[in-house]
Amino acid sequence: MADIPALKALINESVMVLQADDYSEAQRQAALGTVFGVDTQLILDQTYFVIERDGQIVACGGWSYRRTLYGADALAGREDNTLDPKVDPARIRAFFVKPGWTRRGLGSQILTACEAAAEAAGFRRFDLGATLTGIPLYQAYGYEPIETTQAQMAGGLSLPIVRMGKALS
């Protein structure tokens, strides 16, 4: 929980810089704190990972055994009831990398750790809500698009989110 201020700063910087080619500034600003942001339930569940370099968090991401697919604490409509690993896919959640630290395999390291932890918990399938920016990473690891939805935000804005899935072979 002590890392929350650093996580918020990392998420804000990541969204505003790295997602600039895929979303307008208005969309990115509206999404911060609701669609994008810290989900303390992941921290409490101990399913959220960070990578530090020189005492600074440079990447974060996690997985969940709860129904919510994406979003921060303030996102309306959260569903924190637990999933059944026999029938439900685990959720891959909240991946962000600090600008200047991309293309170093940090997202891949966290994704691999998340999948391994979810598999150890009995899950055989994974779902996630990808940003347009994140799609290439997830496709490289075998995730397939399922559907595109629109996250509704303040000011009548929306943000496309691509639900993707993967099953273990």
Rank of each mutant, 00 (worst) to 15 (best):
V35E: 10
V50Y: 07
P160K: 03
G134I: 10
A117Q: 12
S158R: 11
V58E: 00
R28L: 01
V87R: 10
F95I: 02
Q152I: 15
P89H: 04
R93P: 00
G142N: 06
G155I: 03
Q150P: 08
S169Q: 15
A151P: 09
N81W: 13
W101Y: 14
Q29M: 12
T112L: 04
G71A: 10
W63L: 03
R91M: 11
Y143N: 02
L32F: 04
L44R: 15
R66V: 13
P5D: 04
V17E: 10
E147L: 11
R103Y: 11
Q56V: 08
E119N: 15
K166F: 01
T133A: 13
R163H: 14
G122H: 06
L111H: 00
C60R: 08
L106G: 01
N81V: 13
G156I: 06
D127V: 11
G107I: 01
A30T: 02
G100H: 01
L7D: 05
P145F: 02
A154S: 12
I51S: 11
Q41G: 11
F95S: 02
E147F: 08
C114N: 02
F126Q: 00
R28F: 00
D84T: 05
Q56I: 06
F49V: 09
N81K: 14
A94K: 12
L137V: 08
I51E: 11
T112A: 13
N12I: 14
G142P: 04
T34W: 10
G134E: 12
M16Q: 13
T82V: 12
E13G: 09
E147A: 11
V15G: 00
P5F: 01
S158C: 10
L168P: 01
L168V: 01
V87C: 07
D39W: 07
R66T: 15
E119M: 14
R103L: 10
R125F: 00
G165L: 01
G71F: 09
A2W: 05
V15D: 01
I51M: 10
A118I: 02
A74Y: 08
G61L: 09
T112I: 09
G107P: 07
F123H: 01
I11L: 04
G77Y: 06
T102N: 05
W63V: 04
R125Y: 02
A31G: 15
V15C: 03
T34S: 15
P136L: 00
